[in-house]
Design a protein around this nucleic acid. Structure first.
Lengths: 225, 225
DNA sequence: CGCGGCTTTGATGTTCATCAAGTAAAGTGG
DNA sequence: CCACTTTACTTGATGAACATCAAAGCCGCG
């Protein structure tokens, strides 16, 4: 669900920069600390910077035409956020909100443009990154929609466990309602399925805390559901 | 449903090329005529060229993990096809199949890479194009999933009518089954809804031929469904 | 001509959203 | 710090939307 690249792909994003270009970027980057639950930007805002999440967790989201919230993707540390639109539109397509306390780096967008224009190798790297992210989101959306509710819950439990916390025991950083917005189900059903999985001994949960007891079975539910 | 750009965006893709670069591309482009119903490439194939559809209609599709076909997007004349993966992967993520007789232009991929590397302005244009296409696909997928079956059918009828044929009367180039693969419903329900819309006097259809009789109402169904 | 795939319609069942109502938790102001 | 309000969470009951199954007609093609 976090549409991220492998570590190798990440560090490669700036591989083709010259010393000078790298300095230029560094000199035009602002570090910001943003507490939990705050908008970094809203859909429609003018894009002025290229955002790197050094620490925390961010949701990309928007309202559908009936006002229902949808979470398009989560960004985790070392992700470049909002790449989907940063080079195509003047304005953000999605809102970004911090789910926990975050620190981000904002590179001035005109500087990024300048370097992309001057360094084709770098441009190609950014292009790869964008393609990868986009395709991950598309794949993920299809995966979600082809699964039944149990499969969806299993999917995100495993994603949080494996990709974000690297532990079978963690505190869920998003509400039941937000889980629903991420995997397209009602909060009621999120809870219902969690309760079922708990009743069947696959997980334990109390409030925000989740513990995966039988990952093997959970993987099966994810893959067959 | 055809995730395409406006005409202005299209011609701009090659705007920043020098005469020489443009000649280089022209000299390394092969024109192919491909009859209806033929694979241009299969998911997993090595990518060796950058494909432009000059005439016809192509579907991008793949099998899900249970062997069910899914159509991710349609490409229509003047689209660059397969951009989602062409710069990120060595292999195609999706299969491409002609829906009607097509003519395509294949630019050698190494030439594209070379020019992107040497011409940052061009790189930026390609990047914009990719971002746009990706976002259109994502938006479309969300749109489909948030609509009921009537809304989905209305959506693709209008898309075919407005974006592909520019007419309220046309021959549907894909089967009922393929319509289902495109908007995530069973072929039975595709037919059921078509029959309902026909019974209600909104459309006429016989075999492949479709006629839209009440577009106003159809738009309402699309937007509210 | 007959076979297989595409199309169509009807009947049935399952999955999930919605509604309702109650409990726990988390802010908020005095 | 406590009463109060609000928001999140949880469970159950109901209904609607859609998938699935079954069967028959149609069309193209060898």
């Amino acid at each position: 669900m976090n549409h991220t690249l492998s570590y190798e792909n990440r560090i490669r994003l700036f591989e083709h920069l010259t010393e000078e270009e790298y300095r230029l970027i560094s000199n035009n980057t602002k570090t910001k600390y943003i507490p939990k639950g705050v908008y970094i930007c809203k859909a429609g805002d003018l894009i002025t910077s290229f955002t790197y999440l050094s620490n925390g967790l961010i949701k990309l989201h928007k309202e559908d035409r009936f006002g229902k919230e949808q979470i398009v993707s989560l960004a985790r540390p070392e992700d470049y956020v909002g790449l989907l639109t940063v080079f195509s539109n003047k304005n953000y397509n999605y809102s970004m909100t911090t789910l926990v306390d975050c620190s981000i780096e904002e590179v001035r967008l005109d500087i990024m443009h300048k370097i992309i224009r001057e360094n084709g190798g770098f441009a190609l790297d950014v292009m790869k990154y964008i393609s990868n992210i986009s395709d991950k989101i598309i794949q993920h959306t299809y995966a979600i929609n082809s699964k039944n509710l149990r499969g969806r819950i299993a999917l995100i439990l495993i994603d949080f466990s494996d990709s974000i916390f690297n532990s079978d025991s963690f505190d869920m950083p998003i509400s039941r309602k937000e889980i629903g917005e991420l995997i397209d189900m009602t909060p009621e059903n999120v809870i219902r399925i969690l309760s079922e999985l708990s009743r069947d001994g696959l997980i334990n949960f109390k409030g925000k805390h989740v513990e995966i007891l039988n990952k093997k079975m959970l993987l099966k539910i994810r893959d067959l559901g």
